[in-house]
Simulated assay, not measured.
Amino acid sequence: MMQLPDYAQLHSAMTRKAYGFFDRGDYNLNLVGIRKADTSANTFNDHLAVAFRLNGASHCYLFPATTDPGLYWRQQPANVKGTAILVPGQYPGLWQIGKHQGSYTALVQRGPVRVYRDSNRDRILDTDAPIEGGYFGINCHRASAHQNSQQVDRWSAGCQVLADPLDFNLLMALCQRAEPLWGNRFTYTLIEEGDL
């Protein structure tokens, strides 16, 4: 089972990786994806952490999520080069508050990312695949608007997706509190289970 970090453990893991960590000011959000070592799953077995301070006190929320694409898009890639799998790393100012596919408010890509291109259409995530950099619509959004989702399937073709719409609503509320204080730019960091 994946160890779920608290604020201090997440801060420590980020420091060991030499990533920036926002530890000053209210609602200075650290958005951190934690990818589980299981590379064959089609479930929301990863986590998205939101760590921040408010009135000096530290807070860390952990939401079930997926940081990799669902089985549908692994077997039927939307891109001829293969399905996008976000490469672990820190992506400064990656997201802004906007509309996911023009539909509902989410965090949408505004900076470049690096993705593996998994093209063999099987159930296993291939991270020894070619890497491509650029703008691919790697957003942060929810799965179903009405229920906690159990399987990823079509919900992610490479986006970072929260399983529970209530968790997603809390994430967006925090981002909307942060935006007037820090601007409409949200850094995202993707780490792996073994980094904790």
Rank of each mutant, 00 (worst) to 15 (best):
Y27W: 05
L94Y: 06
D118Q: 12
G137K: 05
D26V: 07
S149G: 04
N120E: 12
A37M: 09
K81L: 10
R74H: 02
F168A: 05
R123N: 14
F44P: 00
T67N: 15
H59G: 01
L107E: 03
M172V: 13
I191H: 11
N30P: 03
E179K: 09
N139K: 05
D167G: 11
P112R: 13
T66F: 02
Q3K: 15
S103K: 12
L71R: 03
M1Q: 15
G102A: 01
Y19I: 00
D122E: 09
E193Y: 12
G89C: 03
V50H: 04
L190A: 15
Y27F: 11
A143L: 01
P77M: 03
R123S: 13
T83R: 12
G183N: 00
L190K: 14
V80C: 06
D128F: 14
Y188K: 11
Q101H: 09
A129F: 02
Q101I: 09
N79R: 15
R185A: 13
D128W: 10
H146R: 14
G137I: 08
E193D: 14
K99R: 14
D38W: 06
V32D: 10
E179Q: 06
L171M: 08
R53H: 11
G33E: 10
L190R: 15
P5K: 06
V108K: 05
A78T: 06
Q151R: 11
K36R: 15
G137T: 07
A157N: 05
G134T: 09
D128I: 10
R121S: 04
S103N: 13
G25T: 11
H11P: 07
G98K: 05
D6V: 04
T39N: 12
G93K: 02
L174V: 03
Y19R: 02
G137N: 06
G111R: 05
N42I: 04
I131A: 00
I191K: 12
M1P: 15
A157H: 09
Q9C: 08
Q147N: 13
H11L: 11
M1D: 13
S149A: 13
D118N: 06
R177L: 07
D122C: 02
Y91P: 08
G56C: 08
W182G: 07
Y135F: 13
V108T: 14
M2K: 14
Q3C: 04
G98M: 09
D167Y: 11
Y7N: 01
F186D: 04
Q75L: 03
V161S: 02
H47D: 08
A51D: 04
Q76H: 12
Y188S: 15
P165M: 06
G183H: 09
D167R: 04
K81H: 10
C175D: 03
T43P: 04
D26K: 07
C175K: 02
D23N: 13
I138L: 10
Q9E: 14
Y7K: 07
